[in-house]
Amino acid sequence: MNSLGEKKEEKVGRKVQDTLALMRKNKVSYAMLAPYFILFFLFTVLPVLTSIFLSFTHFNMLEMPQFIGWENYIRLFLEDDIFMTAVKNTFIFAVVTGPISYIMCLLFAWIINEFKGKVRALLTLIFYAPSITGQAFMVWSLILSGDRYGYLNGILIKYGFMFEPKVWMKTEKYVLPLLIVVQLWLSLGTGFLTFIAGLQTVDKSLYEAAAVDGVKNRWQELWYVTLPSMRPQLMFGAVMQITQAFAVADISIQLAGNPSTNYAGATVVTHLIDYGTVRFDMGYSSAIATVLFIVMIGTNKIVQKVLRKVGE
């Protein structure tokens, strides 16, 4: 028994020495990576850990945090009806806008990639611009304005579909569908650019080899050659689209207000913003953020498993 234990200790010792030797050998690389890891720890890992800790406390930013255990989570799931409404709205957003926007990004990137040079660059800019412009909410505010000067009201009245203007973003049944439409319009963002870049890196010789192996049309090329060749971009795009789908807040606040009519446009993030920046109940808002973080991580894991099967 002692000899077995000694052998294990020697094996572990050798592994430690090999690791240290490898680190010394690549110390320049570690030194170059250090600034990123330091910043990542300070501005990503540390805030997440702090938020998880604060979720078990009562903290109003004026007094020291008081540990209260699971009280925030019990209140969140059993007593907060608005949170449950926000969860429902968020999952509707995620289920509708997540897959549709992901497919839209891939489809438009695939089509635009067929063009060459300046035409491709121009089309990329046209499709990408709505996601980065600061005037997007102003455009939709004009379209959805609740008087006769709103573009949507004006068009529908002009062609006889209705006779009185509707206050779109103050009418409960219209709020969520219209927010979904706006979210889809804004969805061609970073994931879209990633897919454009990924499509341009696919080795053209693979298409010739696929044709020899029996691939007969563009759809088969897409499934058996293009998508498997850009799995990293597909993974990154999925993460971005999922994050965007679950983190919807700005469009709801800008167009429907916070709170929206009967909380029809409330999402988990708008609920978090309400408690974090209006009520300053940082412990409770941290509990909301922690739940959202866990859901997003779980969803990303599921999507990654699905995407690994692409082209099989």
Results as ranks from 00 to 15, higher is better:
residue 244 Q to N: 14
residue 306 V to Y: 01
residue 72 N to P: 11
residue 80 D to L: 14
residue 52 I to N: 05
residue 173 K to P: 02
residue 123 L to W: 08
residue 232 P to T: 01
residue 221 E to W: 00
residue 305 K to M: 14
residue 149 Y to M: 13
residue 251 I to S: 15
residue 170 K to F: 10
residue 227 L to W: 00
residue 218 R to V: 01
residue 26 N to S: 06
residue 114 E to M: 02
residue 225 V to P: 00
residue 140 W to K: 07
residue 106 L to Y: 01
residue 198 G to F: 05
residue 273 I to A: 06
residue 279 R to F: 15
residue 225 V to L: 01
residue 98 G to M: 03
residue 283 G to H: 13
residue 253 I to Y: 04
residue 271 H to A: 11
residue 190 T to I: 07
residue 135 Q to N: 11
residue 110 W to T: 04
residue 44 T to F: 11
residue 293 F to I: 06
residue 82 I to H: 12
residue 28 V to I: 09
residue 55 S to V: 11
residue 33 L to W: 15
residue 66 Q to D: 13
residue 122 L to H: 06
residue 136 A to L: 10
residue 93 F to P: 12
residue 233 Q to M: 12
residue 202 V to Y: 04
residue 126 I to R: 13
residue 178 L to P: 10
residue 253 I to P: 01
residue 21 A to F: 15
residue 183 Q to I: 05
residue 310 V to S: 00
residue 123 L to E: 02
residue 32 M to V: 09
residue 194 T to W: 06
residue 58 H to I: 10
residue 201 T to C: 02
residue 158 K to A: 14
residue 181 V to R: 02
residue 84 M to C: 00
residue 9 E to G: 03
residue 201 T to M: 10
residue 291 V to C: 07
residue 224 Y to T: 00
residue 199 L to S: 08
residue 107 L to G: 12
residue 6 E to R: 14
residue 63 E to Q: 13
residue 54 L to I: 07
residue 13 G to C: 03
residue 142 L to P: 00
residue 126 I to Y: 08
residue 119 V to S: 05
residue 193 L to G: 05
residue 307 L to F: 05
residue 186 L to I: 12
residue 21 A to H: 12
residue 206 L to C: 02
residue 310 V to E: 00
residue 277 T to K: 14
residue 60 N to T: 14
residue 278 V to I: 14
residue 154 G to H: 11
residue 12 V to N: 01
residue 204 K to G: 13
residue 9 E to F: 11
residue 170 K to A: 11
residue 283 G to V: 10
residue 8 K to F: 09
residue 48 V to H: 08
residue 291 V to T: 09
residue 112 I to W: 15
residue 53 F to G: 01
residue 260 S to C: 10
residue 97 T to N: 08
residue 13 G to M: 12
residue 208 E to R: 13
residue 55 S to C: 06
residue 267 T to Y: 03
residue 240 M to T: 13
residue 114 E to R: 08
residue 133 T to I: 09
residue 144 L to V: 05
residue 113 N to F: 08
residue 291 V to Q: 03
residue 72 N to Y: 04
residue 129 A to S: 09
residue 186 L to T: 11
residue 65 P to K: 03
residue 15 K to V: 04
residue 38 I to G: 07
residue 140 W to Q: 08
residue 308 R to E: 02
residue 196 I to K: 03
residue 64 M to F: 08
residue 292 L to I: 11
residue 253 I to V: 15
residue 52 I to H: 12
residue 49 L to Y: 14
residue 66 Q to G: 09
residue 150 G to C: 13
residue 92 I to L: 06
residue 68 I to P: 08
residue 251 I to H: 06
residue 104 M to T: 06
residue 122 L to V: 15
residue 145 S to H: 14
residue 6 E to A: 03
residue 134 G to T: 09
residue 218 R to P: 01
residue 189 G to F: 10
residue 50 T to R: 10
residue 182 V to P: 07
residue 177 P to S: 06
residue 63 E to R: 09
residue 289 A to S: 13
residue 110 W to S: 05
residue 167 V to K: 12
residue 238 A to W: 00
residue 211 A to V: 09
residue 216 K to W: 05
residue 218 R to D: 00
